[in-house]
Nucleic acid binder design. Structure first.
Lengths: 236, 236
DNA sequence: GACCGCATGATTGCATGCGATTCATCTCCA
DNA sequence: TGGAGATGAATCGCATGCAATCATGCGGTC
């Protein structure tokens, strides 16, 4: 949909860049997965040059990790990085809410309400798209601000949060409750800036909490093995 | 100083990327300036490939505009885009302040105070680096949060703001007053979250105001010519 | 039997070369 | 004289090829 490299007049590099980003964000490429230039180039029918360039750009975005002479890997955020992403997200979405509150246009409200309806629909039927829709609600809000930079950052950070939750959260925790979304829309349409801010804050906090980010299911080998090592020393 | 591509173990692409960014932020490369791959590669003793790659990455950061089949140009953001960047920046730096307030480590304070001293020094002597140092104060704050994502975003958005001010502000307005920086550091070290937040808010507002962003020295041809056109109509 | 050093294969890092596109200039015609 | 079209240089977009680097498996040694 958003990736028609040639038809969109995009350069091949741009096309690959967009396609890879989508693949990563949709988790078709799992965090930590290797991204060999050859394979990517071949998959898209281009040379390594293009793949390489796209990977470099994704690295700037933080979606890909570039290890010198080793190759590229899909970034796999640690629990701590996800927590950091949520901190940034709170700040950004706060700006979104502040920008929108009191200056919502009817067209924007219409779109938001339509989205809410879709969310409810998907949630009731346990549709696969429910999680995606929940994320897209936030993207829609960002879009409505008309601030392109803000929109880009929110998109990125929401993606990262999703990626992080997918990696570390317990199952079925990545979705927003759509009632909270509905409340937000009402506060925004009423021009209740403070209320909307508080709702957004609570919403994001709940989202992070649902994810059990305080737990640490982190497979840090060294930390796990440290006690064993010290026991070995003591026994000896 | 911060650009020794080979010695730093950086790839050549990385070195060029960093060097070009610095050159743009120090306004050695003016907004709108052309950036031909050939010339850049030659200047750094590398091939076009590397230059091209670095330019692509800078484009992702928003420092460079890539026009298909036309080449690369130093980005020259519109007044509106600069305003948007400031809006985002306020949100991000707020998170920085919230994160830091009350948990400043002595090492961090030392670095901040050293930086303040350097700023004062540069300001007194009207050194060329004064503007850069003023920006780097904010980067240092972001770095001290330990939040890599936040640091990246602040870096980008500060760059954009600097670039925007370079394009649209009246001369000598792009520098922060380093007294405001000093006040911030004191509030942070005292753990005065609310005070630090307020200071940062005021500081950024002052920065934007100094830039006369409300004025519109925009060379919008149509707007300028509109009265002439209507007069022509009237006369006719 | 375990560990260290070395050769081999795979992959990255970078430079070069060949079309393709664009812009500037010149020419020609109305 | 003014403008539309042609021509050329300059530059970009991309593929390919070679050297450098790193992972992997094997043989040797303690």
């Amino acid at each position: 949909m958003s990736l028609s490299p040639s038809s969109a007049g995009l350069s091949r590099t741009g096309g690959l860049h967009a396609a890879l980003r989508l693949a990563i964000l949709e988790q078709q490429l799992a965090p930590g997965a290797r991204l060999p230039e050859d394979a990517i180039g071949e998959a898209f029918g281009t040379s390594r040059t293009i793949a390489r360039e796209a990977l470099g750009r994704l690295a700037v975005e933080g979606l890909v990790e570039l290890r010198p002479n080793r190759g590229a890997f899909v970034a796999s955020p640690s629990v701590d990085e996800v927590r950091q992403a949520f901190a940034v997200r709170r700040g950004l979405e706060r700006v979104v809410v502040q920008t929108l509150a009191g200056q919502m246009k009817p067209a924007g409200l219409t779109r938001l309400r339509a989205h809410l309806a879709a969310e409810r629909e998907a949630e009731e039927h346990h549709a696969a798209g429910a999680i995606r829709l929940a994320g897209e609600f936030h993207l829609l809000l960002a879009e409505l601000t008309g601030n392109a930079l803000l929109q880009r950052y929110v998109t990125e950070v929401v993606s990262r949060c999703s990626l992080g939750l997918a990696t570390h959260a317990r199952p079925h925790s990545a979705d927003c409750g759509c009632r909270e979304h509905a409340g937000l829309v009402e506060a925004l349409s009423a021009g209740d800036t403070a209320g909307a801010e508080a709702l957004m804050e609570a919403h994001l906090a709940a989202l992070a909490r649902r994810a059990r980010l305080d737990e640490a299911p982190e497979p840090d080998i060294r930390a796990v093995l440290a006690p064993y090592a010290s026991r070995l020393k003591g026994t000896r």
